[in-house]
């Protein structure tokens, strides 16, 4: 006979009828011999049935008629934060790209650890845009500008850029 502990482990599946037939037979066998577990199952089955009787107070139709207009008002009232997306892909792309350029440009001159000052601006812009495959980064306004730069420019490329931009001399 299986243990009481095992019965407890299988209890939810047993109560919900999702226990495999083989295990169900073992639980039934256990319950026929263990009055404590049988009583536990009986009470839990009753609890299950009881909680399903929880009624829901239906809201009147008038409430639903105002739901969408109210939501639209809230959407209009609460302006988008500077990094949030608008449902127009081209606008989102333009906003995100402009933001990257701004952040990178600012950081060129205030992040000595990255040492990007020596890079031609045009080259840097091109690389940032080309490596910008995850626009989602711009939604998460919790990133520090340095993190955005690190995230957008692959480390290998960043290393090359920091070595002095030799790779672009031929461009």
């Amino acid at each position: 006979m299986i243990s009481c502990r095992k019965v407890k482990r299988w209890m939810i599946d047993y109560l919900e009828g999702t226990l495999a037939e083989k295990e169900k037979v073992l639980v039934d066998e256990h319950l026929s011999k263990c009055s404590q577990c049988a009583q536990e199952v009986e009470v839990l089955v009753k609890t299950q049935k009881l909680v399903r009787l929880k009624a829901r107070k239906e809201m009147p139709e008038g409430f639903w008629a105002h739901y969408l207009p109210r939501l639209r008002r809230r959407l209009e009232e609460k302006p988008l934060s500077r990094l949030e997306w608008r449902p127009v892909p081209t606008l989102a792309l333009a906003t995100a790209t402009a933001l990257v350029l701004l952040v990178v440009t600012v950081n060129l001159f205030r992040t000595p650890s990255l040492n990007l000052e020596s890079l031609p601006r045009k080259v840097l812009v091109r690389e940032v845009v080309a490596s910008n495959s995850e626009l989602d980064y711009f939604i998460a306004d919790s990133f520090e500008p340095e993190e955005i730069v690190q995230a957008l420019i692959p480390q290998e490329m960043l290393n090359s850029l920091m070595r002095g931009g030799e790779m672009y001399e031929t461009l």
Partner: peptide, 28 residues
């Protein structure tokens, strides 16, 4: 939201918050 909060004012506010969040992050 009502089942979770058991309060109609909270359910209205939080359910609309959910739609607002969905609206603003649909691209994700």
């Amino acid at each position: 939201a009502y089942s979770l909060t058991n309060n109609h004012a909270d359910a209205l506010d939080l359910s609309q918050e959910a739609f607002i969040k969905a609206y603003r992050s649909i691209h994700r």
